[in-house]
């Protein structure tokens, strides 16, 4: 009788041994999230740091980013000018910190605008058969025009402004989202669960919003983050070649453009905005990869 009772005294051979499988330590939800999604946390932390810098720019020991002091021009980094000064004597540190505002604004607004426009066009194009070839040829045409050309054209019509930069980059980027969404919609609409939803009495709108869009979300979110990252770079490129944000608004692109002439002797003018640009783009891309993994329910359940 005692032999069949595993917790009977006769079986207490080594009662002091620790259990074979240690009970996992109880952790808070935050700690679990960090452990499961390190890329999201790192990406969000980098991006959050940049947003914080941009928001708190006036309180980070910065001066007026436009203040000229020709007497103190081209200074190397020092206690007074952390990142040195440029050829007009402006404080590079202040300009880089304020430049974060421009770059993040452009990145976030372009990512949102291009995604919304692309999803709308892509859904319609993928769903309305007869409209598809027409919309896609227009999209092909838009994709053939580089954002630089659109920006130059807009600069010719209106004055250079951040809004123009956003419009130019959005026009160049949204066709990619539209094509992606259309492709995903075309493959998803052939899924048996779409037929099953039709048989269950669902209409076109419900199928689009409830069955197709949620399943197309992964690639859309990843694409949106990549577009945000590439918009930050595109803004820098446009500003660098002088068709982007006007010189009165500091941006990482035009700081680098102004430091270009002095690159070989005073590399820090280009170096500091470039480092900020890299960190921002890295953060956004990490966030995108992490979100993709988290949003997929098949991957998310993996402990």
């Amino acid at each position: 009788m005692t032999a069949t009772a595993p917790d009977g005294e006769g079986f207490a051979i080594a009662p002091d041994l620790p259990p074979l499988i240690a009970e996992p330590p109880r952790r808070g939800r935050v700690a679990t999230f960090v452990r499961r999604h390190p890329t999201i946390v790192l990406g969000a932390a980098l991006l959050g740091l940049m947003v914080l810098i941009a928001v708190c720019a006036p309180w980070l020991g910065t001066g007026d980013p436009q203040a000229l002091s020709p007497a103190k021009r081209i200074r190397a980094p020092s206690a007074e000018f952390w990142f040195g000064t440029d050829s007009l004597g402006r404080d590079v540190y202040s300009r880089v910190i304020y430049g974060a505002r421009t770059s993040l604004l452009v990145g976030i607004v372009v990512a949102l605008a291009a995604t919304v426009a692309g999803v709308a066009v892509g859904l319609v194009s993928g769903f309305v058969r007869w409209l598809d070839p027409i919309v896609m040829r227009v999209i092909d045409g838009l994709m053939a025009i580089p954002s630089v050309l659109i920006a130059i054209a807009l600069l010719g019509i209106a004055r250079g402004s951040v809004v123009n930069v956003i419009v130019a980059i959005t026009l160049a980027e949204f066709p990619r989202v539209a094509r992606l969404v259309r492709g995903v919609v075309l493959s998803l609409r052939e899924q048996p669960y779409v037929d099953a939803a039709l048989a269950c009495g669902s209409g076109g709108g419900r199928i689009m919003l409830r069955h197709i869009l949620p399943n197309a979300l992964d690639p859309i979110i990843v694409q949106a983050t990549y577009i945000g990252a590439s918009a930050v770079i595109a803004e820098a490129v446009l500003s660098f070649i002088g068709v982007g944000t006007p010189p009165t608004v500091p941006s990482w692109g035009n700081i680098m453009a102004e430091g270009r002439a002095l690159w070989q002797v005073k590399p820090y003018i280009v170096f500091f905005p470039a480092v900020f640009l890299c960190i921002t783009v890295l953060g956004v891309n990490l966030l995108g990869d992490g979100l993709r993994d988290m949003l997929d329910p098949r991957v998310a359940k993996r402990a």
């Binding site: 899924q191 048996p192 669960y193 037929d195 099953a196 939803a197 039709l198 048989a199 269950c200 009495g201 669902s202 409830r210 069955h211 949620p214 399943n215 329910p297 098949r298």
Partner: peptide, 29 residues
């Protein structure tokens, strides 16, 4: 008509929306 006419498809893996919970899948009709 559709209310009285339903379907079970071949592939049990693709005939349900992977993002919906079972409750919502069966509740849809």
């Amino acid at each position: 008509v559709r209310r009285r006419l339903q379907v079970v498809f071949q592939d049990p893996f693709s005939s349900m929306n992977p993002r919906m919970k079972v409750r919502d899948i069966v509740a849809e009709p």
